[in-house]
Computed example of a mutant assay.
Amino acid sequence: MPSTAGSGEPNSDLDATQPDFDVYQAYQRALADEETSPPLAAILSLTELVTRSDAGTMFELVQALNVGAESLKKRVPNQIGLAAGCELFIGFVTLFPHESANFSELKREIVHQGKSYTLSAVNFRSKIAELVLGFIKDDSVILTHSYSRVVTQALLHAHTRKRISVYVTEARPRGLGLKTYETLTAVGIPCTMVLDSAVAYVMDKVDFVLVGSEAVVESGGLINAVGSNQMAIIAKAENKPFYALAESYKFHRSFPLSQYDLPTHNSGILSFAHPTNRPASEPARSPRASPQRTMTSEQMDRNPDVDYTTPDLISLVFSDVGVLTPGGVSQYLVGMFAGL
């Protein structure tokens, strides 16, 4: 990337101490753009932190970035995506060449590089969509889960070149499958909404499964919207390919061994509620008394938002760096952080 280093004069904006800067608010502002995913929003918020920081040495700057990253993680319930972005940016800053005698100039260049990366990273989805196209035949029937920007873009791109039909799961508790359904049907792609509980029922009718990701971890496994794991298990049993799409900024140095190793897991998830005591004279209501029975918000809170899919269930991972096996993801991730 071309250097944007200035004349060497101190930049007052970079050197000013601004104790009122809130990295979480910066993160929320970045997320307001529909095209910006949590890892990129994390990078943008940390670049703004660099701009506002009064750090005078690289050690102080990295320390401030680590504090900012921890602050973000504490304030965001699902920290997986933003953690991957923070990890990538802090690793970049830590290894950034700092021969310049003017530290303000160095910070300007770091900010420039961070912003340039996030601008170029939006195009990663187009690269992935083109890679996926080569695996889609005419009249393919595809099953997807929840809502993913990169999956949606891949399906929209495929629609311009191939005949496809798509089954979309409801994806409770957030119900984001409806967003995918509306986006695809708006351009004329034949779609059918599928209950999460009907995935096994529909699997025999599909050619392959296509899901997005919140993170791809060191094992080559996948963290994504809850329900992805059971979908992968059923696809494996039915001998159907299970493809994951992930931009490289979602590659995350984490090694969960089970669902309960995810950073989103807490003691409240899947905990048992205490039964409500009724007076002896009050009969229990029949389940048929309310035909529109749904989960309460408290019941939903006891359920996970994401789950972990083990690498043995994943056929291929499509990324802007190529089409990788889960083992290939592990090798790439090690090399990526070793050579930042």
Rank of each mutant, 00 (worst) to 15 (best):
S254K: 12
T160C: 13
V317R: 09
T94H: 03
N239K: 14
T17D: 09
K236M: 10
Y249R: 06
F135M: 15
A186F: 13
S297M: 11
Q331P: 02
G339E: 15
I128H: 07
L72S: 03
K162H: 05
V187I: 12
P97M: 06
A244N: 05
T192V: 15
F272P: 07
D305V: 12
G268Q: 15
L119P: 04
I43Q: 00
F272K: 14
T94K: 06
R149F: 09
E105H: 07
K137S: 14
A158D: 00
M1N: 05
H145N: 01
T192Q: 15
N102E: 15
V209P: 03
I110G: 02
G339I: 12
Q113P: 02
A289D: 13
K162I: 03
A200Y: 10
A171V: 06
T51I: 08
S271Q: 14
L184E: 03
R125G: 04
E130N: 02
Y332G: 01
K115H: 04
D312I: 00
G268R: 11
F251R: 02
S3K: 04
V317W: 09
P2C: 10
V150E: 06
E87I: 00
E109F: 05
R149K: 11
K127M: 08
T118Y: 08
A121V: 04
D196R: 07
T118N: 07
I90N: 00
Q28E: 14
V329Q: 06
L49E: 01
D307H: 03
Y332W: 13
P283M: 14
N11W: 14
I233H: 09
D261S: 04
I269R: 01
E218P: 06
S53N: 05
V206P: 01
Y332A: 06
I80N: 05
K73T: 07
Y27S: 01
A83H: 10
T264W: 10
G85D: 01
A84S: 02
A246W: 03
L176R: 14
N66V: 00
A83L: 09
S120E: 07
S146M: 02
Y249F: 11
P263I: 00
I128Y: 01
K73E: 09
K74P: 06
A186G: 08
T185E: 09
Q63R: 14
L184P: 01
K107N: 03
V50H: 02
S254W: 11
V199G: 00
H98M: 10
E35V: 02
A186H: 11
I269L: 00
K205L: 15
K250H: 04
N11T: 10
T296H: 02
Y260G: 10
E60D: 11
Q113I: 07
L262M: 03
A121E: 07
N277K: 13
K162D: 04
T310R: 07
D15V: 12
Q18S: 15
R288K: 12
V23N: 00
A64F: 06
R285S: 11
I110S: 00
N123R: 14
A284T: 13
D312T: 01
E218K: 06
Y181E: 10
S104A: 08
F255H: 13
S45D: 02
P77H: 15
L119R: 14
F124Y: 13
L313D: 02
T325R: 11
P241Y: 08
Q153D: 12
F251T: 00
